[in-house]
Nucleic acid binder design. Structure first.
Lengths: 128, 128
DNA sequence: TCTTTACATTCCAGTAACTGGAGACTTTAT
DNA sequence: ATAAAGTCTCCAGTTACTGGAATGTAAAGA
């Protein structure tokens, strides 16, 4: 199938699918006459896999790793679990950061009248 | 003072301070002989302000806005509060995303034996 | 004074993961 | 035959810096 159908089936944009070909993540065959990329169902399965992993916040390089584990019938589940645990840990860090950010900001907002006068505890805090 | 002291006092890197000059956020005077950037205490205060706002996850453009409010003695606190509330809302969205991501991933991890055998519920889920 | 060292300048490239657009070619529909 | 839709490659832009090269200036030591 052509790229637009592969994109539709995998839920990715044509640009993204072409990008994944460029970076050698999913390299389809080529139609010799037209030069058009020609995707198989297997290619689409890989695109799907990548799309899902990306939505799980795995980076492109991590996706590459997961993909090669996915295609290796002899891999151990230990390796996959390790990658996933690391991903969870990094998400936990981000969560912590964002939580404390949120707390500080909402504290500032609560202190601010939000009226037409210039006095503003938020700016006061930022300038300290 | 020269750029390295301004950097030190504001807790930013020299590169970053120079970058803020390039994008016209904090434009110091120049020493005519040497061409060196020459920072005042006021400039450092602005750098500080920006550094803090960045740590609060405000984008450069938002910092620009906050900075002009900060320098406008007649601004209303309403405007600042509005920006900050929008920032909190966007942080809340990210928090929600990361929370559900975390939950899904940790569910998968719990299902995975993590042994030397190839069977892996994580990859199974990604390939669905 | 000379030299070394530290600090400063500009400019270019790279980061992550795409996205948008131009110009050209192929396929499909009318 | 022509027009529209789909595809191709290549280049630039996004965010907020960071690293490095080549070059110039200032301060400190011999």
């Amino acid at each position: 199938m052509n790229i637009s159908q592969a994109a539709k089936l995998s839920g990715l944009s044509v640009k993204t699918v072409r990008y994944y070909a460029d970076i050698k993540m999913v390299e389809p065959a080529r139609n010799i006459q037209s030069g058009y990329r020609s995707y198989t169902n297997d290619d689409v399965a890989k695109l799907n896999f990548i799309g899902k992993a990306r939505r799980f916040n795995f980076s492109i390089e991590e996706c590459r790793e997961l993909l090669s584990l996915y295609q290796d019938k002899n891999r151990s589940s230990k390796e996959v679990k390790k990658l996933t645990l690391a991903k969870i840990a990094s998400i936990d860090e981000k969560l912590k950061e964002f939580h404390s950010l949120r707390d500080e900001l909402s504290h500032l907002v609560n202190c601010c009248n939000g009226d037409d006068r210039p006095s503003c505890p938020i700016l006061d805090e930022l300038s300290k």
